[in-house]
């Protein structure tokens, strides 16, 4: 990695006074590094950094499709925070959605990873199948869930109505996507389905890095399985868990596909997240300014998580060195 002594040594060795060595003294020995970065920098500045500031500009303007826009200050933010009840609901939905999704993904992902670690035969089959939801196209697999949750064709309703022991209770048929509470539960459910593999893979890798001799020592001391999990696995897994929880929170907060396919934010706007609501404003209603303002609410949360993450990732790498 970069270290100051290296830079100085290289400078001392180079002949003095030439223009090139002057540049090297200022920018380090490998000036061509900037050249390697150049294509990436061009793409990122023109298609990420510039659009980001454009979004900020939109959010403080009265931008509308096909019309010249002018500065209006914080009007858009004030409007969505004070007069737009749906937006307040969207904030609440997003928090609810992210919280329950992540909680279930951690718990189910951890248990599944622990089980997968213990098996020896058919390892590839089991791993391969539980990881499948992660690689398949979300929009298409969510359409599969859409059929499973459809009020008329629902497989769940069919089971409730036609198989023992459910027939005894007379449950259903439920309109999973038509009732606000059930719809929210459904989108969280599908998000969990889609997100568990990420947790399984990363937790499995974390489990592999725990030294075996700790368990052997615990076994000699007569520790139970639960005790070993609580006193060895969980503490040593904590850094990995913290990182993937933050990662998953970012991706869950920005979720679009599942909501768009299953409910489009309905019924009665009860499942809108920032992404789908921003889509509704910016694309469907052509209110670019309000759409950008809604999406920007993600930004403070994002910054907070990135700061946390950077600290942890940094600490990890310094550990390695």
């Amino acid at each position: 990695m970069v270290s100051v002594p290296n830079v100085e040594r290289a400078v001392a060795a180079s002949p003095p006074a030439s223009r090139r060595s002057e540049l090297r003294r200022r920018f380090g020995p490998d000036i061509d590094g900037y050249g390697f970065l150049l294509p990436a920098i061009i793409v990122m500045i023109s298609l990420v950094v510039y659009p980001f500031f454009l979004a900020v500009w939109f959010s403080v303007s009265d931008a509308f499709v096909g019309e010249p826009s002018s500065y209006v200050g914080l009007e858009n933010f004030i409007y969505i925070l004070t007069e737009d009840d749906i937006f307040l609901m969207t904030i609440w939905n997003t928090l609810l959605f992210a919280f329950w999704s992540v909680v279930f993904k951690v718990v189910l992902g951890l248990t599944c990873a622990l089980l997968l670690q213990r098996i020896l035969k058919l390892k590839r089959f089991f791993r391969g199948s539980v990881l499948l939801p992660f690689v398949a196209p979300t929009a298409l697999t969510t359409l599969g869930w859409w059929l499973i949750l459809d009020p008329t064709y629902s497989h769940i309703n069919w089971i409730l109505a036609n198989t023992w022991p459910f027939t005894m209770f007379g449950l259903g048929p439920y309109n999973f996507l038509g009732n606000p509470t059930l719809a929210m539960a459904s989108v969280i459910f599908v998000n969990i389905w889609r997100g568990i593999p990420f947790f399984i893979i990363t937790i499995l890798a974390g489990l592999m890095s725990i030294p075996e001799h700790l368990y052997d020592a615990a076994e000699i001391d007569g520790a139970s399985t639960w005790r070993k999990f609580r006193s060895i696995t969980l503490p040593l897994l904590r850094p990995v868990l913290a990182i993937i929880i933050l990662f998953s929170t970012i991706f869950t907060l920005g979720e679009f596909n599942i909501i768009y396919v299953l409910t489009r934010g309905g019924p009665m706007n009860s499942t809108h997240l920032f992404s789908t609501y921003s889509f509704t404003y910016g694309i469907l209603n052509h209110e670019i300014a309000l759409g950008a303002a809604v999406a920007l609410f993600l930004f403070p949360i994002l910054v907070l998580i990135v700061v946390f993450l950077l600290r942890m990732v940094r600490r990890d790498t310094s550990h390695e060195l």
Binding site: P51, A55, I250, L296, L298
Partner: peptide
Amino acid sequence: GVAVFITYLIPQTLLFIPLIDV
């Protein structure tokens, strides 16, 4: 390096509206 990490985490939700303009 940090900039790469941050751009990796910026969700598409933040960018799709201005990207239409681009």
